[in-house]
Design a protein around this nucleic acid. Structure first.
Lengths: 161, 161
DNA sequence: TGGAATTTTATGGGCGTCAATGGATCATTA
DNA sequence: TAATGATCCATTGACGCCCATAAAATTCCA
């Protein structure tokens, strides 16, 4: 299993250090950890996106499809690479987030790590709670669209919620 | 195809551990147990939903159709993954539920495990009794509509811890 | 068929390990 | 030398792992 899953909340200490949850570290190592994680402000949320080598390769893959020196490629590479920071993990599994990233996510004393499969996000706990509320509503909508079919002989997905 | 069926009630011990009913464990193992069960708050009930790899694949399947780095994917993956916790099963078939999940379901000293086919739910026994009572009434109404009478005297349905 | 022996389960507790956190020491550089 | 950052060390609390016990179910045998 080499996907980021589950959520964890850790503290930021007086020096600005945060422990990356051990399960996430394990994923990063298996992913081919190369000295640092890739971290950037989420495009559509007050949070930070982060990941390892696989995430970096995915970003590369998106650019690969576009012709060199096209406007799209320039714009997209600025959007994708422009704010990316490579952050080192210390011997105890901790990172220090630069001020610019911290302010984007409004991080104060705690960080909630949210596994999203190929990458993970870092949130201020309060903001994540709010987002989660919204997210649950959206899932309910999807559930109405996808699930909730009359039970077939197969049984299928009761999806009772 | 192995499915989660029946209900069982087990105790939460002083360390917060609960035994997963042996029949459910058997289903999880045949399902390709990979180190933990996937668990999240039920969307429309004071309970927890849980399952094994098959449930995880269902969640992944919802995301599979969406392009990487689209807004939809980001939002939906937060929605789907955000609440999910991966919970390890110890050598004796027990799990420890995080505080956040316990409070959603109001779990105190006992947990009622309810099989729902592809997944199962965890309830506080009192709350599940209430839910079951409502469900039975609805079933009775259906029977009347279908012109069938309950064949047996029916009483409690055993199956408890 | 009935009862004894054996296996499976649920539950409780002890203990060692590891992760998270805080603090100290050392290096680096302005 | 002061300040900043990086590496190392220490504590503590949680968690994983092991064993013990009792109850229940299952198997086995007379």
């Amino acid at each position: 299993m080499d996907r980021f899953v589950s959520t964890f909340t850790n503290k930021i200490d007086a020096k600005g250090r945060v422990s990356i949850p051990a399960p996430f570290r394990a994923v990063l190592e298996r992913d081919g950890y190369a000295g640092g994680i890739y971290c950037y402000p989420s495009l559509d949320a007050p949070a930070l996106d982060a990941g390892g080598e696989r995430l970096a390769q995915k970003i590369d893959g998106l650019l690969a499809g576009l012709p060199d020196y096209s406007d799209e490629r320039d714009e997209l590479s600025v959007a994708l690479y422009g704010d990316v920071q490579v952050i080192a993990i210390d011997g105890d599994g901790r990172i220090v987030l630069p001020q610019s990233l911290r302010s984007h996510a409004g991080l104060q004393s705690e960080v909630t790590f949210v596994g999203l499969g190929d990458k993970f996000q870092m949130w201020a706990p309060e903001r994540f709670d709010e987002r989660r509320r919204v997210a649950r509503e959206k899932v309910q909508e999807h559930r109405k669209l996808l699930g909730r079919q009359p039970p077939r002989s197969d049984g299928g997905d009761g999806e009772d919620g």
